[in-house]
Design a protein around this nucleic acid. Structure first.
Lengths: 204, 204
DNA sequence: TCTTAAACAGAATAATATTCTTTTATTGCA
DNA sequence: TGCAATAAAAGAATATTATTCTGTTTAAGA
């Protein structure tokens, strides 16, 4: 299954089997019950282990949460990077960013749901610094990539800081709605619409 | 001060003074420490009251959270409704939605910050049904308003379910970034850019 | 095989949320 | 005004949950 790949890629081997097990069930609990309502006991019960094992691997609840969060974010970023590398124009890049975002959410709905709800706690918790660094890095890489394209013909909105919001804002908003069952249609079905709209929104 | 108006409008009178006091300080704690890390004791200490008083007014922690959440959401919605009522064309409506959103966030940064971080917990908690109903209502009203405008000349993207995401997605994304200090420039400074971009993104 | 470090278990403790009982203040009404 | 009746508030008692600690087992490398 695809879901497990995110964990197996990052915590490989027989030795980390329980670690992956705990993470998998913790993900389920966080999504099902919410972050605060998920107790260590509930996770323990679901994967039939001990508090000792959980605390050995993660230190505390925040540790489980952050491990999951960074694993998900990293997978999403890798996916984007991979798709973005193929592009050769700004227009292609926009399409690639939007499409890979929508595809990832649809392929990993549980991870995506978690990513949305865990951001705030992680941003406030003991790993906020790591989150900041990662965000800054991702932002820089994206900026360099996008600015590397020459644009003779087309005028793009200024300044750069609003551009990421214009590109992914609508897709993100729709994906949240989809994951919360407020809309039914899969985000993938709107790849064209969101890509083209993003592209139009950038031009001036 | 403006901040208090949200509470005074909804919990008026001398009798509710402590209730407002608790809410005000709880808002501060939730934003400062995060929802889960905020203890009843911390709130109690900050407004120099007793656990009995807190539980008398709100039942439990979730009650405080939900009361704050719905107060904020309601104020934001009222603001939008008020601005939207003045409009007479689709284009005006788009501008009004975007502008009132940006203005509200800038006017009430603490409430906006809270709204973003409290959505998930409320959606999972005992008030999820009320949240659902409110969302459905707001969605219906917006839909009716937007579809009420005739559009002879301009073709708009289909179907309707992606339109709200196209309109507010970018603004929302940017406001989040601003409240997290990832960007410096006030969202208000980009009223024109976000309004025009939204409008362009809708046309096909 | 032996040593060492990691993995795991579960009882003990600490922190936190919630309940319950009592006291005090406020309102509505005779 | 005075008198229920109800709401507000306090804080001790309890229940729930997170975390620590100590001991035991397991696996890897020498």
């Amino acid at each position: 299954m695809n879901k497990d790949k995110i964990l197996e890629d990052r915590f490989p081997g027989r030795r980390a089997a329980l670690k992956r097990e705990i993470l998998e069930h913790a993900l389920y609990c966080f999504n099902e019950l919410g972050v605060e309502a998920t107790t260590i006991d509930a996770i323990k019960a679901r994967c039939d282990t001990s508090v000792g094992a959980i605390y050995h691997h993660f230190g505390n609840k925040e540790g489980i949460l952050s491990t999951l969060f960074f694993a998900a974010q990293d997978d999403q970023r890798q996916n984007l990077e991979h798709e973005l590398a193929k592009t050769n124009s700004l227009r292609e890049a926009i399409y690639s960013i939007v499409s890979s975002y929508l595809d990832w959410v649809v392929a990993q709905p549980e991870w995506a749901r978690f990513l949305y709800q865990a951001r705030s706690p992680v941003a406030k918790g003991p790993f906020r610094q790591e989150l900041k660094v990662r965000n800054a890095q991702n932002y820089q890489e994206l900026k360099e990539k996008l600015l590397s394209f020459e644009n003779k013909d087309i005028k793009i909105v200024q300044p750069f800081e609003i551009i990421p919001s214009l590109i992914v804002g609508p897709s993100e908003n729709y994906c949240r709605a989809w994951l919360a069952n407020r809309v039914r249609t899969s985000p993938r079905d709107y790849r064209e619409e969101f890509s083209e709209s993003a592209w139009r929104s950038l031009q001036r």
